[in-house]
């Protein structure tokens, strides 16, 4: 086998492997993603069939003997094949797509969750009361969290999207299409998952240096688990008088981060009240471990270029370890 052949086979296998997993529209686990996937397969099949037909015709026109047909036959082919057929096909596709749209966007019967895209993480608030609209900001209050969104299975959850800085786009490929998060505007997206599981989401609109590291996790749980989770998130942190907490406060971490139940009530960065209950840190970037927390505290910019959090590498390693150990206990 030649090297070129081997590498092209390898690339095809590599591409196919992206057709399954927690972050692909090919592995649909939500109503909208399933409908869009069906549309995609129909479009792809149709496009391949039409492509083969056109290539076949052009082959016949150049290599065959098209002159044996009358001009009238040719004209008929142009009218039916070039005008009537595409018009009917496009009209049918348009009808199908338009019929789908209002159905996918009908009112929610699940929770309303506010999600703000911020450079470069996702601010989440459960149990909010608000509406979409222009010249409007996301509703305040609710149960705060970050970078991990829980939603109940087989329910239509309404995600209200906004942003305090630049335009982001919220995309969980396995569940639904994209929706922009625009400053001064509240957009609405319906997520209706049909399977339990954990799915990856991403920012799909370039928003700055760490745009590629602005991920999130969506946990699809049963209704009971969802309710239990939100209740737990609403509770203050289970704090004790540990050294980690006093170091956290001494070094000014509370100026930007909130840990409810402690004097830390900053609102610039993610709420850390139950940070250890999340699966990842730094917006889906690294698994939640105390080592990763320590590495992020020491050099956030190294892991996430452009992040607003300053590096705390000047602190002694032992202190960083104590802070991350304490954060790692906040479940």
């Amino acid at each position: 086998m030649r090297r070129g052949q081997a590498s092209s086979i390898f690339s095809v296998i590599a591409l196919l492997s992206s057709c399954t997993g927690p972050q692909t529209a090919f592995d649909a686990a939500g109503v909208e993603a399933q409908r869009v996937l069906a549309l995609f397969w129909v479009l792809l099949t149709g496009a391949v069939a039409i492509w083969l037909l056109v290539i076949g015709l052009s082959y016949y026109a150049t290599k065959g003997d098209p002159a044996k047909h009358s001009e009238k036959t040719g004209l008929r082919l142009i009218i039916w094949g070039g005008c009537v057929f595409p018009t009917v096909v496009l009209a049918a596709l348009l009808f199908w797509g338009l019929k789908m749209m209002p159905e996918l966007r009908r009112p929610a019967d699940g929770p309303t969750i506010a999600v703000a895209g911020e450079r470069f993480w996702w601010r989440v608030a459960y149990d909010v009361d608000g509406d979409p609209g222009a010249v409007r900001n996301l509703p305040q209050g609710g149960v705060p969290s970050a970078n991990e969104i829980w939603i109940p299975v087989n329910k239509r959850s309404e995600i209200l999207l906004g942003s305090p800085d630049v335009i982001h786009s919220f995309w969980v490929p396995s569940l639904a299409g994209k929706m922009d998060a625009i400053p001064g505007r509240v957009n609405r997206l319906i997520l209706e998952p049909t399977e339990l599981g954990i799915f990856n989401g991403a920012c799909a609109e370039f928003c700055g240096t760490a745009h590629a590291q602005m991920g999130l996790r969506v946990v699809v749980a049963s209704e009971e688990d969802f309710a239990r989770y939100v209740r737990a998130q609403a509770e203050p942190a289970a704090v004790d008088e540990s050294v980690g907490l006093s170091l956290f406060l001494q070094n000014g971490c509370g100026g930007c981060h909130s840990v409810r139940g402690t004097p830390a009530d900053g609102d610039v960065g993610p709420d850390l009240t139950h940070v250890a209950s999340r699966r990842t840190i730094a917006a889906g970037l690294l698994p939640m471990t105390e080592e990763n927390l320590a590495a992020f505290i020491a050099a956030p910019d190294h892991l996430k270029p452009g992040v607003e959090m300053p590096a705390f590498g000047v602190l002694p390693d032992a202190e960083i370890e104590q802070i991350s150990e304490w954060l790692g206990s906040l479940e």
């Binding site: 005008c83 018009t87 496009l90 009209a91 009808f95 019929k99 749209m101 209002p102 966007r105 009908r106």
Partner: peptide, 22 residues
């Protein structure tokens, strides 16, 4: 004119199928 006729019908299809702003 034939193309324009078809295009105008296509442009009108959304109001036939969608009754609100969602």
């Amino acid at each position: 004119a034939g193309l324009s006729f078809t295009a105008v019908i296509f442009e009108t299809m959304p109001v036939l199928l969608i009754g609100d702003c969602r």
